[in-house]
């Protein structure tokens, strides 16, 4: 294959677009990790449920796509908060909260992941469902050198960036955002500030699940919606979170973009049939040379 500068540019652009989606799922995983001290292994299923909620809203209830996106985010957030309250929170009752529940929580996350896949299978069946959304009002972007970016990719990039900006604003400049950061850093001190810590934990979980759902609705029109789609997304988002530095929110986005670009370049120039390997290759490389991740801090130490 001759080296073609334009196609390289195209691969990078597509890599970034898909990468920001990995980034917003990774953002959710990082948010839960820094807020609740657990790695949420059922997060891929929140993404999958979000995609299905979006699909049902658009195709069966004929809701316009942007409203379906918001609707799916809210539904999934509520769904995630219910799962956390009913199942995960119970494990922390023995005392010590999320920080101590550790291993039990990981196993519970795996179990939840399998349960949710099967629940989705009962409801929607095993077939991949095409997600047809009317996106005609979104302009196609043309780059120099005849690179055309389809509507769904343009939309994905815009919405992902908007979501990240909104999250950043919320955490940095609102009173509730300040409380979320306080809970993430130390729950006991947050309590002493008069913060309703259990409520904030629900909020963090809901936010993270809502972000996952947004990714699902955005990816839907590019690929298709299927009950097992969460597994691979979890792995990629996980890789993104680790590459960027686990628990770091800007790191999650950077990691997502890197995984997306790396994967697209690998598929284009090495072998397309091994597309899903490159993310983990990147993960291994980062772990060898900078184990704390690109923007990560050294292991979190708590007094």
């Amino acid at each position: 294959m001759d080296f073609d500068y334009n196609s390289l540019l195209a691969f990078i652009i597509f890599g970034i677009t898909i990468g920001v989606v990995y980034g917003i799922v990774a953002l959710g995983i990082s948010l839960i990790y820094s807020g609740l001290d657990i790695v949420h292994f059922a997060h891929g299923e929140m993404y999958m449920f979000g995609a299905f909620f979006g699909l049902v809203l658009v195709q069966e209830l004929s809701v316009p796509y942007p409203i379906a996106l918001i609707g799916a985010m809210i539904l999934t957030a509520l769904f995630g908060m219910t799962v956390e309250r009913v199942f995960y929170r119970r494990l922390t009752r023995g005392g010590g909260g999320y920080t101590v529940a550790g291993m039990g929580m990981i196993i519970c996350g795996f179990g939840m992941s399998m349960t949710l896949v099967n629940v989705a299978y009962f409801i929607w069946g095993a077939e991949a469902e095409p997600f047809r959304a009317n996106l005609d009002y979104i302009p196609r972007l043309s780059f120099p050198g005849d690179i055309e970016v389809p509507e769904s990719y343009v939309l994905t990039a815009i919405i992902s960036v908007a979501l990240m900006a909104a999250l950043h604003y919320f955490l940095r400049y609102t009173k509730t955002g300040l409380a979320v950061r306080a809970v993430a850093h130390n729950k006991d001190i947050a309590y002493l500030m008069g913060i309703n810590v259990p409520l904030m934990i629900s909020l963090i979980f809901g936010l993270a699940c809502g972000l996952g759902a947004a990714a699902g609705v955005l990816i839907g029109p590019m690929q298709s919606v299927q009950v097992e789609m969460g597994y691979l997304m979890l792995m990629k988002a996980f890789a993104a979170a680790v590459v960027g530095g686990f628990g770091s929110l800007p790191g999650a986005i950077l990691g997502g973009i890197m995984v997306g670009v790396f994967e697209n370049l690998g598929a284009a120039y090495i072998s397309a049939s091994h597309k899903d390997i490159y993310a983990f290759l990147l993960l291994i490389l980062v772990l060898i040379f900078k184990p704390s991740g690109l923007l990560g801090v050294e292991a979190k130490v708590k007094a």
């Binding site: 300040l178 950061r181 306080a182 850093h185 130390n186 001190i189 309590y191 002493l192 500030m193 008069g194 913060i195 309703n196 810590v197 007094a303």
Partner: peptide
């Protein structure tokens, strides 16, 4: 009562100095 409910009644604990939030600004 839960800790945050006690704070709302006006019973406030000043934590040890090391328990400020180091990654937040003074004003935050």
């Amino acid at each position: 009562m839960k800790p945050h409910e006690r704070v709302r009644l006006g019973l406030v604990q000043v934590t040890q100095a090391k328990e400020a939030y180091p990654a937040m600004t003074v004003e935050e």
